[in-house]
């Protein structure tokens, strides 16, 4: 269990979106702004006000499409009109499209202690999703015991790809000369010593030049 710095920092108070579907293992959030969603592999936080627990999860998938699932998006542009001009010409699109992202739950914190296990209750529906501050990330990843849990997830992405994205994202936030990344990778290597093929997929995705 690691001490959690959490809250207080302005970044962690920013809102990314709102939980619109929730289960014990994952939740889906709708972004407040079209196209604005956290990076794949990013650590995000829900709750944490007053005596409530903070729930932590890793962004596992993102999607932008019709607000009404029965209305598929169609091509609006061409050679003359494209990219942002399409939105300028079709102002209603901002209202009929939405961006959603799926988050794999990897732990929670109560008080100043964080737990790398699934919370006993699903993340509350309609709660805000916040980005994690650097100190949140430092605290939650100090002992990366949640990594095996991520290997067992079944989502849109193969778990190896999701894990590699998360490792790269944490490495980018910590900017610690890859010390954390090397440690996490060693842990994974030990964990996956009987599964070289899967581990090499992760290693390749983390550092394709090696």
């Amino acid at each position: 269990m690691a001490a959690l710095f959490s809250a207080g920092e302005s970044k962690s108070q920013e809102r990314l979106g709102e939980v619109i579907e929730t289960t014990t293992t994952s939740f889906v959030a709708e972004s407040d702004q079209l196209h604005a969603l956290p990076d794949l592999g990013a650590l995000v936080r829900v709750g944490g006000r007053a005596s409530q627990p903070s729930y932590f999860g890793v962004v596992a998938f993102g999607e932008t499409g019709g607000l009404d699932t029965s209305r598929r998006a169609v091509r609006r542009g061409g050679v003359d009109i494209h990219d942002e001009e399409v939105y300028q010409r079709h102002p209603e699109l901002e209202h009929v499209l939405r961006t959603i992202f799926t988050v794999t739950v990897v732990g929670y914190s109560s008080g100043s202690v964080c737990h790398h296990v699934l919370p006993t209750q699903p993340v509350p529906l309609h709660y805000s999703v916040h980005p994690c501050s650097r100190s949140d990330v430092l605290a939650f990843t100090a002992e990366p015991r949640y990594l095996p849990m991520m290997l067992a997830t079944s989502g849109e992405l193969p778990p190896e790809m999701l894990l590699a994205s998360h490792l790269r994202w944490v490495d980018g936030v910590l900017r610690d000369d890859h010390i954390w990344l090397a440690d996490a990778t060693r842990r994974l290597a030990r964990l996956m010593k009987r599964d070289y093929d899967r581990f090499s997929m992760i290693a390749q995705a983390i550092a394709p030049d090696i």
Binding site: P91, E92, E94, H95, V96
Partner: peptide, 14 residues
């Protein structure tokens, strides 16, 4: 109710 405005400041209200 839908209002769509086009031009330099396009906007929509639905």
């Amino acid at each position: 109710k839908v209002r769509l405005s086009y031009g330099t400041q396009s906007s929509a209200a639905l």
